[in-house]
């Protein structure tokens, strides 16, 4: 084993290789590595943030659903109440109307009866007079007896 110029040659080669490596080889790979590392970290971060967002959104959706369900049931209940109320009102109205009608009819009937009675009374007087004339076959002083007959008719 003889030591010779190869020693120097190797040292020079080493120096050049190291220089080249520092200058041209290491930086691009290292920076790419670190950039990717950052990218992956960002990605993971985003993923966790997204999952958190998703959870939040789900919660919100559930909340909204719950609220709307509650609202719907409220509305339903209100409508139910309102319809019962309306039915009640309608019924009330119908009864009132019916009563009014019945009362009207009754009043009319009463009126009719009264009129009929009046008419009858008037006619009865006449009839009585005619009958009496026939019976008596004589003229009766109409004026003299009219008052009497009217009294009689009023008693009917």
């Amino acid at each position: 084993m003889n030591i010779n110029m190869t020693l120097i040659g190797q040292t020079i080669a080493f120096a050049i290789f190291v220089w080249f490596c520092i200058k041209y080889v290491w930086p691009p790979i290292s920076s790419a590595l670190h950039e990717r590392q950052k990218k992956i970290a960002d990605g993971l971060d985003a993923a966790s943030r997204a999952s958190r967002d998703l959870e939040l959104a789900q919660e919100q959706a559930a909340q909204t659903l719950r609220e709307s369900k509650e609202q719907a049931s409220q509305i339903l209940e209100q409508a139910h109440k309102r319809s019962t109320q309306m039915i009640e009102e309608a019924r009330e109205q119908a009864r009132a109307e019916g009563e009014r009608l019945v009362a009207g009819a009754r009043a009319e009937i009463d009126q009719e009866i009264n009129r009929a009675k009046e008419e009858l009374r008037a006619q009865v007087a006449t009839l009585a007079i005619v009958g009496a004339e026939r019976v008596l076959e004589a003229s009766v002083d109409e004026k003299a007896h009219r008052k009497l007959l009217d009294k009689l008719a009023a008693e009917l």
Partner: peptide, 17 residues
Amino acid sequence: PTTDVNATLGMALGVFC
């Protein structure tokens, strides 16, 4: 090359520097 003492000593000399 690493079975040649010149090569290994050359590199070691570089490290020494």
